[in-house]
Design a protein around this nucleic acid. Structure first.
Lengths: 212, 212
DNA sequence: CTCCTTCTTGATAGATCGCTCTAGTGAGGG
DNA sequence: CCCTCACTAGAGCGATCTATCAAGAAGGAG
């Protein structure tokens, strides 16, 4: 309780006065963790590197994340997973119809990929594959994020009039197409797979809407 | 030349006479590398662990793979990638028609996943994501494998009468669905995503065949 | 037999890993 | 005022990482 209040105060008065990167130390550590894990994976990223990127003291990692690297990984998965879900929601809210929303989401993903030199694809897929057979806490964190994405997309399609069972299938298809295309795009350094997968997803959603 | 001849002889006379696992030392190292990389990723797998699994002397890794772990990774990617392509070819050759082949491939993948406790999915996806932004040699190796898969699937669909351009799109869609479903299956420990992705792939292939 | 090459074997170097520990800093409360 | 405590700061620990090296075993060629 007190700790949370302190942190909130600290955030506002920018403690210490030093001109560091914006955000609290905890936030900066979490952000750089998420970024590095996304790009190089969990085991491929050292804690030293994380604090260097975050311009944070090494000891602060274990102050804010007593569970160590694993807790850091779990929180990074959850927060960046939630962020990605909000990204889709934002695009969906602005799009004129459902197929457009899907198409724009894939197009936006391709744009991000090119802008970041094919580094930023799915925020958690790399870690999810790495830890699926080695760390239950991290595997569960990624599973929960994926399940929330599926649930969100299912609700979105269902709201457009598609039966829930079919909507859930659509959600899995669309997200599988996206994740799979990410794998190919990053390895081959081209957005062609994402363009094709996007077109396929749009077509499938369109067909499901026509049926309903 | 001489080295290759020697290795072939060595393979047959099972040098040393010790009752090790079958295959040459080089083959065993490559096999256990491929298996461990597939399950825990590249950075998550140590050379010590590889030789322990392969029942091979530590130094032999650097005798057969002077390029070290990176060369080991590249060769593992290429050989297991080629093996996976042959698996699809085998299934395709036995299936009565194209949609059946696709459906059986997805079903077989799901079966393997359950049998290996969700460990063995795509042989190279985990490594591909990990190294895409950190090692050009490994990234290229995975890109070449993916490209060969796409080329193989494109030729297969084209042989069934589908126009080449459409066939290539189908290949990307099918493999994206597969790779994406693998990510979800491993994290969520269920084959539901693979079943849905498989049905979607079969439907898309069927529609393309109907057009042609 | 000796010489030569191939391959085995493990000790070890040097770097880096995740993590712990202690000391120090500075703002808020009594 | 001083005391408290959240946070900063980084040296250092043991373990593990990749890679090298020197010594030796085994079989073929002369």
């Amino acid at each position: 309780m007190a700790g949370i209040a302190r942190a909130t105060i600290g955030e506002k008065i920018e403690r210490g006065g030093k001109a560091k990167a914006p955000g609290t130390t905890r936030e900066r550590i979490l952000e750089s963790s998420a970024e590095l894990f996304r790009r190089q994976g969990y085991t491929g990223t050292g804690v030293k590197r994380i604090v260097a990127e975050a311009r944070a003291p090494f000891g602060s990692v274990y102050h804010f994340f007593p569970g160590g690297k694993e807790q850091l990984g779990a929180e990074a998965i959850r927060t960046s997973g939630a962020l990605y879900a909000r990204l889709f929601a934002t695009i969906a809210a602005q799009a004129p119809d459902v197929p457009s929303a899907v198409g724009e989401f894939f197009a936006g993903a391709a744009e991000t990929l090119v802008e970041t030199d094919y580094a930023d694809a799915c925020p958690i897929a790399t870690v999810a594959l790495e830890v699926a057979s080695t760390s239950e806490p991290l595997r569960k964190a990624s599973a929960e994020v994926f399940e929330s994405w599926i649930a969100g997309a299912t609700a979105y399609f269902a709201a457009a009039g598609i039966p829930v069972t079919r909507a859930r299938e659509l959600a899995f298809s669309m997200l599988s197409l996206l994740e799979g295309a990410f794998v190919f795009c990053r390895a081959m350094r081209t957005t062609e797979p994402l363009a094709i997968a996007g077109a396929s997803a749009v077509a499938e959603v369109g067909a499901a809407l026509a049926e309903a």
